[in-house]
Design a protein around this nucleic acid. Structure first.
Lengths: 211, 211
DNA sequence: ACCGATCCTGTACCAAGGTATGAGGATGCC
DNA sequence: GGCATCCTCATACCTTGGTACAGGATCGGT
């Protein structure tokens, strides 16, 4: 699957020019003239980036950029502008833009920025895929199993877990074993890393160690 | 201990003006007119940030900024400039600057940037302190203990470790116990997180799991 | 030559983890 | 009602982990 480049610009001539350039580079290009069009077309499952013009009719492209995180969209943005100034560039870069290009810019500058943008998005995809797989397995755990797993990862011994939850030792062992199987953890160390990555924290456990 | 603000500017008038402003805000201020002076004064143990002018006599302030990581210095930089343009701002921000201010700028803009810079440096200090403590304890381990600990964290059972290292089971247990004591790990989960944070990876172990 | 650190091993014992079998109660869904 | 899931427990057995005690070997520094 080829990487995709979204172009959001209100000038049709600019869109067409970029379209030609990027198609020649074997990118899949999607052209948009409004931010709504981009939002509709955006697919978080695809390796992509956004080429964003600051001026979109009455809308400020940097406002569009700033609104992306609020919508849960983490696409790498490359900002373009015809009449940019320093504060504008700083704002765009602070908001996490990969680059801020003033028109006219050489093709190489754009292509280099796109490469970096797609590389970052590729990292996002990899992290997201792994996290999704973990969450899928974690979802299979029953509430009790999650509870026990959390305490295990917090460093408590089965006996302590049993005491804290008011259970018999065997019961804890069973839940623990189930959790290991469902999470497909080959070892306790595995489980620790998995729950770490999922951000699971047992309730009422201080920093590090047991009690 | 009050936070420290380094000012690196070749214009004495600018330095004095900033000095007055920041002292009034209860910052500890250090003035420098060359990058060597700053490098000498920089103390990574202190909560600080750098206010950097782009023009330093014959030296480019952005070159100075770019050279900091190579020297292992991770100080938050706020770039100032009298005659900045967009490419300059983009370069500074890409290099990780907290902000890029064009003179003249309002005091509030600077103070806000300094707040953000010091907050980031504070996070660096906290992370560094924890990491240093861990490294100190890890340094107490003998080579063999490190080896065993790495395999333990990789998820291998003592028996497997013994086989792989050509040792008896007891020996592995002893090294393991020593490692736990020296690292002050209250549980295996602890040890996993500690070595994770230290970036310790056992040699020849694939992704996750044992073998 | 002596000391200390490191590394390795044997034996023995106890604590903890893990599994299997069997079973009872509670809940919720079709 | 029948069924599945979840939670719980009892008993029994085996594996693994952890430690204490005792000893031997090597190596580098004093």
């Amino acid at each position: 699957m080829t990487a995709r480049v979204h172009i959001l610009d209100d000038d049709a001539d600019v869109r067409d020019a970029l379209d030609s350039l990027l198609r020649a580079e074997a990118f899949e290009v999607m052209l948009h003239d409004t931010h709504e069009a981009f939002l509709d077309a955006y697919d978080e499952a695809r390796n992509c980036c956004l080429l964003l013009d600051v001026r979109l009719g009455d809308v400020d492209g940097l406002d569009v950029q700033a609104a992306l995180p609020g919508r849960g969209i983490d696409v790498p943005v490359i900002v373009m502008t015809g009449h940019g100034d320093v504060p504008m560039a700083v704002r765009g870069m602070k908001a996490g833009a990969i680059d801020f290009l003033s028109k006219p810019f050489p093709d190489d500058a754009l292509l280099g920025a796109i490469d970096r943008a797609l590389a970052r998005d590729c990292a996002r995809l990899a992290a997201s895929a792994e996290r999704t797989a973990l969450q899928g397995r974690y979802a299979l755990l029953t509430p009790r199993e999650r509870e026990v797993a959390g305490l295990v990862v917090a460093g408590l011994m089965n006996k302590q877990i049993a005491g804290r939850l008011g259970l018999e030792l065997v019961t804890v062992k069973i839940h623990r074993g189930q959790a290991m199987r469902k999470m497909e953890a080959q070892s306790l160390a595995d489980l620790v890393r998995m729950l770490e990555r999922l951000g699971v924290r047992a309730t009422g456990i201080s920093r590090y160690g047991a009690d």
